[in-house]
Write a protein that binds this DNA or RNA. Structure first.
Length: 318
DNA sequence: AAACAAGCCAACCGCCTGACA
DNA sequence: CTGTCAGGCGGTTGGCTTGTT
């Protein structure tokens, strides 16, 4: 009996909570590789996991799925998040559809930890017109500038030394967003079809290459389904392709620890440009609006694609 | 070196919706 | 029509990591 007098089933009493262990992850991965996703409560039982179906679903979608991209949010992704959020607000899952491999949870965390922080530092509400204007007329143009600069640098570099296979794959997958249709790995709402732009337009395909820090921003070609490509995994490193250090308290959080490059480094604010009474430089001693150290080497979309997206979104509103 | 604060993110919670009996 | 269930969503929190004093 619980405190409310309900009779708990044995399963309810045994349910585990908190961080997932390696063994649990392996059980979930292997079960889904064999039987596929869906029917999460049944799946949890059948896989021998003492977790709720919800918990299994969340773990799979946000962490274990082979196409989950981890690591830094790129400048292009930041720009896209700002743009889409300005349109749709906190529709995280909808926004996530346009960021291949990113989860709604990750985008939500990015928004809350980075964007809202800046709103706070500017002493305005994140939903205020003032802050939205800051984003649209200051932050986003700066991001575009940075993206252009990075793209130019990349082009020069590429011309000098032939691109690697990975770079080629990335370009093929992402730089022709409006033309590229491969296996659709996303649910697409009718609303999205209306504007002639679907999430799959920006997605190479199922990304099945194991995640490593080195390939974190490259898409890999893949087979059609998870089930056909994964045999039973007994070692988590087989799945992630990186050593598992196992020295973490929660025993699962460091399959891969993304580098902690601060996103604050990717945001800039030239003093004197903002028309309102906002003194960016005085707000932050270390001037986190300075983008100089931002890492933008991994361009998922070039500027033309971004402008295309902008155009499509404008059409959507007409 | 220790204590504290802030940043960050995985995981949980409650609510909502749609499918189905 | 109603109840149940599964799945999805956005908000919130707990705890680990990192930075600062």
């Amino acid at each position: 009996m619980d405190e409310k007098g309900r009779t708990l089933s044995e399963d309810e009493m045994d349910l585990r909570r908190g961080p997932w262990t390696v063994d649990e992850d392996l059980a979930l991965i292997n079960y889904i590789a064999t039987h596929g996703e869906g029917r999460w409560n049944t799946l949890a039982l059948s896989a021998g996991l003492k977790r709720t179906g919800k918990s299994c679903r969340l773990r799979w979608l946000n962490y274990l799925r082979p196409d989950v991209r981890r690591g830094n949010i790129t400048l292009e992704e930041q720009l896209l998040i700002l743009e889409l959020h300005s349109r749709w607000g906190n529709r995280w899952s909808k926004i996530a559809q346009y960021l291949p491999g990113r989860t709604d949870n990750e985008i939500k965390n990015y928004w809350r930890t980075r964007v809202q922080k800046h709103a706070k530092q500017l002493k305005c509400d994140v939903n205020s017109k003032q802050f939205k204007d800051t984003m649209r007329y200051l932050w986003m143009p700066r991001l575009v500038e940075r993206i252009q600069a990075a793209a130019a640098a990349t082009t020069a570099k590429t011309a000098a030394a032939n691109t690697t296979v990975a770079a080629t794959a990335t370009n093929n997958a992402y730089t022709h967003g409006n033309n590229l249709i491969n296996n659709n790995n996303f649910e697409v709402h009718s609303h999205d079809h209306k504007m002639g732009l679907t999430p799959s337009d920006f997605v190479g395909s199922h990304v099945t290459k194991s995640y490593t820090p080195e390939n974190s921003n490259t898409a890999a070609s893949s087979s059609d389904s998870f089930g056909t490509q994964v045999s039973t995994i007994s070692d988590i490193t087989d799945y992630y392709g990186v050593p598992f250090s196992g020295n973490n308290n929660n025993n699962c959080a460091d399959y891969y620890q993304p580098s902690q490059v601060g996103y604050k480094d990717c945001i800039t604010s030239p003093s004197g440009l903002f028309p309102q009474e906002l003194d960016f430089q005085s707000l932050e001693p270390n001037n986190p609006w300075n983008m100089q150290s931002g890492d933008s080497s991994d361009n998922f979309w070039n500027v033309e694609n971004m402008l295309f997206l902008e155009q499509q979104l404008m059409n959507d509103n007409m």
